[in-house]
């Protein structure tokens, strides 16, 4: 195949414990470490491996977001992507709107395979890939833990509640990645230097996908109910006593 398109979302780093702003308007993202959504990083790693195995010609990474997302795209280029596209917007877009933008990119790039993270670790929606597949009228294989390309098809093993399900889908298709698909490579310093010279296009959202709807309105944010620290017991008999006292055994 020629082109694999990979979505990279800029999110609060997974190691940051986010806090809700006191006025409930959102979570505090000022000054916190940002990074590539971990599932998207796995998607990129898989695309690179497919290219390195001679199964794809080029890997294009794309992000829909603020100028600052250039940073994550540069990291994607340093990992080994050939080109990057930033669809520039300060708007916070719902998955359906993102799927529309990605569809426009799929058409622009004539992508044969789209690899996306199964969810982003900020919104935790788990929707974008499925929506893109529907809008594109193509197959989807979500929560992938293994991808094999054979005879114009992708054979994808999926992590589902019942175990591991394998699907065969015709290409082009959308595949969303789960945690155990691969372990993304570390970026080396010379690659970071090289990435600075790789092409990064900036497209206007209004030109690429005009008239996007706003999506569900976030009315307010609140911290989750806290579970308070309980009792510490010294040994197993005391543990058993505490369990009996609570009536759970």
């Amino acid at each position: 195949m020629k082109t694999i398109l990979v979505g990279l979302k800029r999110v609060v780093d997974y190691s940051v414990r986010v806090r809700v702003r006191p006025d409930g308007t959102g979570v505090d993202t000022g000054g916190v470490k940002m990074g590539i959504n971990p599932f998207d990083e796995i998607a990129l790693e898989e695309a690179l491996r497919l290219r390195e195995a001679g199964l794809a010609d080029s890997v294009v990474v794309a992000s829909v977001g603020p100028k600052a997302a250039e940073q994550q795209l540069r990291t994607g280029l340093a990992m080994g992507a050939d080109r990057a596209i930033l669809v520039d917007t300060e708007q916070s877009l719902a998955p359906r709107a993102i799927a529309r933008v990605l569809l426009a990119l799929v058409e622009r790039e004539s992508a044969d395979l789209v690899l996306l993270g199964k969810q982003s670790i900020d919104g935790d929606n788990n929707q974008t890939g499925q929506m893109l597949a529907a809008l594109w009228n193509r197959p989807q294989a979500t929560f992938a833990s293994k991808i094999e390309l054979v005879d114009g098809c992708a054979r994808v093993t999926r992590e589902v509640d019942a175990g591991l399900e394998t699907l065969e889908v015709d290409l082009p298709a959308v595949v969303t990645t789960d945690l155990r698909l691969n372990e993304p490579r570390f970026v080396k310093l010379p690659d970071i230097m090289k990435a600075k010279r790789k092409p990064l296009d900036i497209l206007s959202l209004d030109e690429l996908a005009p008239g996007l709807a706003g999506g569900p309105t976030p009315d307010a944010y609140a911290p989750p109910p806290v579970r308070s620290r309980g009792v510490m017991v010294d040994d197993v008999p005391a543990l058993l006593g505490a369990l009996r006292e609570r009536g759970v055994i």
Binding site: V12, R17, V18, R19, V20, V27, I121, D122, G123, D124, P218, D219, A220, Y221, A222, P223, P224
Partner: peptide, 9 residues
């Protein structure tokens, strides 16, 4: 959202 660290209405 955010792995349950915030609840959004």
């Amino acid at each position: 959202v955010y792995a349950g660290n915030a609840i959004v209405t």
